[in-house]
Simulated scan of single mutants.
Amino acid sequence: KSHLYNLLILVIFFIVSYPSSSNLSFDFYATSCPTAEVMVKNTVRSASSFDPTLSGKLLRLLFHDCFVEGCDASVLLEGNATERTDPANRSLGGFAVIDSAKRVLEIFCPGIVSCADILVLAARDAVEIAGGPGIQIPTGRRDGRVSAASNVRPNIVDTSFTMDEMIKIFSVKGLSINDLVTLSGAHTIGSAHCSSFSDRFQVNSNGKLTLIDASLDKGYAAELSRQCPVGASTSITVNNDPETPILFDNQYYKDLLAHRGLFQSDSVLLNDKRTMNQVMDFANDQSSFLDSWGQSFLKLASIGVKTGVEGEIRRSCSVTNG
């Protein structure tokens, strides 16, 4: 109960403090499309039963949307030089699920539910389906009309970033250091291509392993080198969390304490005094992490939202109405 009370207070704070969020509400579709959230959840649940890795894909898709142009579904737009064409976004997944939910909603509630809301709700539901907390999310976002590949790199976190680089980007988005540590917990699910971490170690022609990043556990590095041998296919992926890869829990933070964070940007959380204590707290107390996740996710889903007469309600999530 205290968790729900704290979350409600945070929602009220956002709606009052951020003008762009002033038209978001919990009952936004109560009259116009009362079963909107149920239809999105059923779509995600059905797709997840066939693809247990979907939760990680949808969560990553939301991050890449909200950090560029705000949470306005700009990452979903197809075309030359759109966000989807940037190399950092070419490995994104989950688009088909969003498109499927949109098709259903257009049948029952044509022109009512935005792709931006669908993406936020789908990511929220994906976390819950994977074992994470259920979170109430205000809706009423509208879809953006701008999607440019040139906006991607300056706005997203790279896996090789230092703590200062990550703090700078999160701060610009209105997110705190606490949010940075909490939202990094998204890496408790999902997977990554070898190229995103292979520069942390080196294997010579004789098979000898050398750590380039000394913060990485050598046994874990050896395990990663076997999964990503030299010359391996670029399509190979590795689980972000080697222990419970499809369960949304606090194992990610336990992995960090064991120096088994997959990315350099993961490992720095343990090695920096500004974030070390929070990592240890989350590793020792899953409830603390899940409570914090609900609050930080709400902030993530409120970044740069378009409401009122801004943007549009797309008929199809991959193209603007114009």
Rank of each mutant, 00 (worst) to 15 (best):
G207D: 01
F201P: 09
F297T: 03
G294W: 06
A130R: 02
D255N: 15
L211K: 08
Y18M: 10
P133Q: 05
G94W: 01
L211E: 04
Q278W: 03
M280W: 05
E165A: 14
R145L: 10
I137M: 15
V11W: 01
T210A: 10
A101D: 08
G190H: 00
G190W: 00
E83L: 13
K273I: 14
S288Y: 10
T82N: 03
G132N: 08
T210P: 01
F170T: 11
N250V: 02
F282K: 01
T139N: 06
G132E: 06
S176I: 08
Q286L: 01
N204D: 15
M39F: 01
L58C: 07
H259L: 09
D241Q: 07
K208G: 00
G174K: 08
L180N: 10
S296I: 11
S225K: 06
R60T: 14
L247R: 14
T234A: 15
A126I: 04
S32H: 07
C115D: 09
V157N: 11
L216I: 04
V181W: 08
L7K: 06
I212M: 02
G132I: 02
T320E: 00
L77M: 14
L58Y: 06
G261N: 05
T53R: 07
D281H: 10
N206D: 12
D65Q: 06
G185S: 10
G111A: 11
F282L: 04
F161I: 09
R84Y: 04
G70F: 09
L105Y: 05
V38Q: 11
L290D: 08
